Simulated scan of single mutants.
Amino acid sequence: MNDRQTLTRPVQRSIALYLLLTTFAGCVDPVELPIRQTERRLVVDGLITDEPPPYVIKLTYSGNLNRALLIPDELAINGAVATVEDNLGHQAQLQQDPLNPAFYWMRDSRLQGVPGRAYTLRIQLPDGSRYVSRPEVLAPVPAIEKLYAEYRVSDPTLLALNSFVVRIDTQDPPEPGNFYRWQAMSYMPVWSTSNDPQGYYNRSISAGEGAYAPFYGPLTQVLSDQLINGNRLAGQVVLTAPLVALGTQYIEVRQYALSRAAYQYWVLYQEQLSRSGTIFDPQPASIEGNVRSATDTNKLALGFFGASAVSRQRMIIPTDTINYARFVSRFGPLLFSNARPEIPGLAREQAQAAPPAKWLTYGK
């Protein structure tokens, strides 16, 4: 790989947009729009797979969640009783995380997900109200046959980072009605502004110096096989990871098989995210999932409890062929600046000294 490959349109337009909005922020008086108040509702987020437990189910009340891992105490559901059962009568009670009360763990290895079985989540909230999910059949998923990445150089006239575009190849089964979802992430090196105290072009910085932080792809990478049934799915983009520092990139991709109901849920979720966000847009509707009150079927929770087999692959991408001096010369003012914009999906607050141990041997 090198940085002389064909130029493409930037995939991180939000950086330029951030800088543009920052420029004009001081010229416009802030406007606070009224927020529609709604009744507090249960929100469920969890998945049973065919990989060994533990599985985690997140239980919260509806409200303003800024970060998925930072849940305000008033929104975390503390003291719920939750169980998962399959259609053969096996049952396991979830254990609440003592440090993160919104997270409930299913650790019983006897209830590991099995393709073809149906799974149901039952919840009793601290106020005594009970909820139950519709049974979700754990569908098998074809294997990820190939995982690979392409290095893309951004338009030099725009403030956009170079990136790695991660793709997979897989084979859709001959039977119609298959639905897919991909979750992808990267552990990538990140530079601190303290790495360059003398200016943007301090050549004493070594490639890859700094910590590793996770970069998460969107939750809504879904696909129906309606137009590709039985064919090979080649070159499916599952992650576009910006290059925020030179150093080895660690990629993981998971491929899930969804039920039709789960697919429709994630499509609606994506439609909400893709709204233009102007004051003329209609107020977003609550995305109701497959969990409802056990005593009042018209009372639905938000979120979705799913079940799926999973195919997982990992890869390591070196960046030693990228010209370090040229990279820092172009992107140093952006990456080392104290006014550096945040990159959507990059969780700098979760940075650690090194990527997770045993990256290549996980699951073997």
Results as ranks from 00 to 15, higher is better:
residue 85 E to F: 09
residue 249 Q to S: 13
residue 77 I to K: 03
residue 78 N to I: 13
residue 287 I to M: 06
residue 239 L to W: 06
residue 92 A to F: 00
residue 118 A to P: 01
residue 80 A to V: 00
residue 305 F to D: 00
residue 73 D to I: 12
residue 223 L to W: 11
residue 193 T to S: 15
residue 66 N to S: 09
residue 361 T to A: 15
residue 234 A to P: 03
residue 235 G to D: 00
residue 224 S to Q: 10
residue 294 A to F: 08
residue 298 N to V: 12
residue 324 Y to V: 15
residue 225 D to A: 04
residue 21 L to P: 02
residue 353 A to R: 14
residue 119 Y to D: 03
residue 213 A to K: 09
residue 197 P to K: 05
residue 168 I to M: 05
residue 74 E to W: 06
residue 75 L to V: 10
residue 160 A to E: 10
residue 286 S to W: 03
residue 36 R to N: 11
residue 347 A to F: 12
residue 182 W to L: 00
residue 326 R to M: 05
residue 28 V to I: 14
residue 256 Y to K: 05
residue 186 S to W: 00
residue 107 R to M: 13
residue 243 L to C: 08
residue 321 T to G: 02
residue 146 K to L: 10
residue 137 V to I: 15
residue 213 A to Q: 03
residue 311 S to L: 09
residue 24 F to W: 15
residue 263 Y to H: 15
residue 161 L to R: 05
residue 173 P to R: 01
residue 96 Q to G: 01
residue 17 L to D: 14
residue 80 A to F: 00
residue 125 L to S: 03
residue 225 D to T: 11
residue 218 P to R: 08
residue 119 Y to M: 08
residue 43 V to K: 01
residue 361 T to M: 08
residue 355 P to R: 04
residue 302 L to G: 02
residue 140 P to E: 14
residue 271 E to V: 14
residue 243 L to N: 01
residue 297 T to F: 02
residue 135 P to Y: 01
residue 71 I to K: 04
residue 291 V to K: 02
residue 257 A to Q: 06
residue 152 R to F: 06
residue 5 Q to N: 15
residue 254 R to L: 07
residue 243 L to T: 11
residue 7 L to D: 11
residue 6 T to V: 14
residue 329 S to Q: 15
residue 252 E to P: 06
residue 158 L to P: 07
residue 317 I to K: 04
residue 135 P to D: 01
residue 213 A to T: 00
residue 232 R to G: 13
residue 138 L to N: 01
residue 91 Q to M: 11
residue 2 N to T: 15
residue 315 M to V: 07
residue 107 R to V: 15
residue 273 L to I: 13
residue 147 L to M: 04
residue 151 Y to W: 07
residue 341 P to E: 04
residue 199 G to V: 14
residue 331 F to C: 07
residue 162 N to A: 11
residue 330 R to Y: 13
residue 101 P to Q: 06
residue 320 D to W: 10
residue 210 G to T: 06
residue 162 N to P: 14
residue 285 A to H: 07
residue 163 S to V: 10
residue 134 R to C: 12
residue 337 S to E: 00
residue 193 T to I: 12
residue 109 S to D: 13
residue 78 N to R: 13
residue 104 Y to P: 03
residue 78 N to K: 14
residue 283 Q to L: 15
residue 257 A to E: 02
residue 74 E to G: 05
residue 323 N to L: 03
residue 310 V to G: 00
residue 53 P to A: 13
residue 210 G to A: 01
residue 334 L to A: 00
residue 121 L to Y: 02
residue 306 G to L: 01
residue 200 Y to Q: 06
residue 192 S to N: 07
residue 23 T to C: 12
residue 150 E to P: 02
residue 276 S to P: 01
residue 77 I to M: 04
residue 137 V to E: 12
residue 219 L to V: 05
residue 148 Y to E: 02
residue 141 V to P: 07
residue 28 V to P: 01
residue 1 M to A: 12
residue 11 V to P: 04
residue 118 A to T: 11
residue 144 I to C: 03
residue 226 Q to P: 11
residue 66 N to R: 10
residue 215 F to C: 11
residue 243 L to P: 03
residue 151 Y to E: 06
residue 234 A to V: 10
residue 300 L to D: 01
residue 92 A to H: 00
residue 358 K to C: 09
residue 25 A to N: 14
residue 257 A to D: 09
residue 248 T to I: 14
residue 55 Y to N: 07
residue 270 Q to S: 05
residue 222 V to A: 05
residue 272 Q to Y: 06
residue 262 A to Y: 02
residue 201 Y to Q: 15
residue 153 V to F: 08
residue 18 Y to S: 15
residue 113 G to Q: 00
